[in-house]
């Protein structure tokens, strides 16, 4: 009996020490480790053949890294480096390319790196339609390079296992520029409906909400002008539009905020 008590006491001591050590450790150590490897080649040499599991592990840590920084400082300096190491370890990790490219463009604001990453992916996975699609997507939505985008969507649509999404998008690029908010919204919703992982959906959702908000504001501003033309003064609040029967209902703000009017212009409280 006494022995069990000793053992339990020792375990408590150990847990306590473990806790204290964690407090002293640098918090970003997980990813920090990777920072110090000059390249994926070095990591590969030291991974003793366990490339794929190591890549999986790095992926898990990458997601953690992404979440952490999104919540805090939105600095993603290491993002490309980590993805590069990961895809060197496992060049067939499609997610790392597609999602990574999206994050690099959207969060790290570095489309050039995302282009390099996708090119690397295409090099190893010539027949994967997703890589071409994301390449086209980034050119279309972020870089506004419509011809390149069109070319890549077309390639993607001819590849095996491709859904009809790239075909749709290829058609889109022919007659609609992305400056047109409505078509842009349609594209994002299409992407949202066709992707499965939460991170990708998240990014799509952000754009969908933003575009929806912009469309609402466009609509409200038009109605405000209508109001002015009839009553010769600007409506002081949104409610006036409703009570004077200019609109049937107030559009709901997609972020859960409120629309309001200031100096004759519509705004969303989300914009502040």
């Amino acid at each position: 009996m006494k022995r069990y008590i000793y053992i339990i006491l020792l375990f408590f001591l150990i847990a306590n020490l473990s806790y204290r050590i964690d407090l002293k450790k640098s918090p970003h150590r997980l990813i920090g480790e990777l920072m110090y490897f000059p390249s994926g080649v070095a990591v590969k040499a030291l991974s003793m053949g366990f490339y794929a599991p190591l890549a999986d592990l790095i992926w898990l840590r990458f997601i953690q890294y992404y979440g952490e920084h999104r919540m805090t400082d939105a600095k993603f300096e290491l993002m490309y480096h980590i993805l590069d190491i990961l895809t060197t370890l496992n060049p067939y990790f499609i997610h790392a390319y597609t999602l990574g490219a999206l994050m690099l463009t959207h969060d790290a604001k570095n489309p050039e790196q995302s282009k390099i990453l996708l090119k690397k992916g295409i090099h190893s996975n010539i027949k994967n339609w997703r890589l071409y699609f994301v390449y086209g997507f980034i050119h279309y939505v972020f870089l506004h390079k419509y011809q390149t985008a069109h070319r890549y969507f077309k390639i993607a649509s001819t590849l095996p296992e491709a859904t009809d999404m790239p075909k749709r998008w290829a058609a889109f690029t022919l007659y609609k520029k992305i400056g047109d908010l409505k078509s842009s919204l349609a594209l994002w919703i299409d992407l949202y409906n066709n992707c499965k992982n939460p991170e990708e959906k998240n990014i799509a959702e952000i754009y969908i909400k933003n575009i929806k908000m912009k469309l609402d504001l466009e609509f409200l501003n038009k109605k405000i002008e209508e109001f002015k033309n009839i009553y010769h003064f600007y409506p002081p609040t949104i409610k006036h539009l409703l009570t004077y029967n200019i609109i049937d209902s107030i559009p709901s703000e997609p972020h859960g905020c409120k629309y309001y009017i200031k100096n004759g212009k519509a705004f969303s409280s989300w914009q502040r």
């Binding site: 020792l10 001591l13 150990i14 020490l17 473990s18 204290r20 050590i21 002293k24």
Partner: peptide, 8 residues
Amino acid sequence: FSLCYGLI
């Protein structure tokens, strides 16, 4: 702490 941890 690490030293103590290892020893204990």
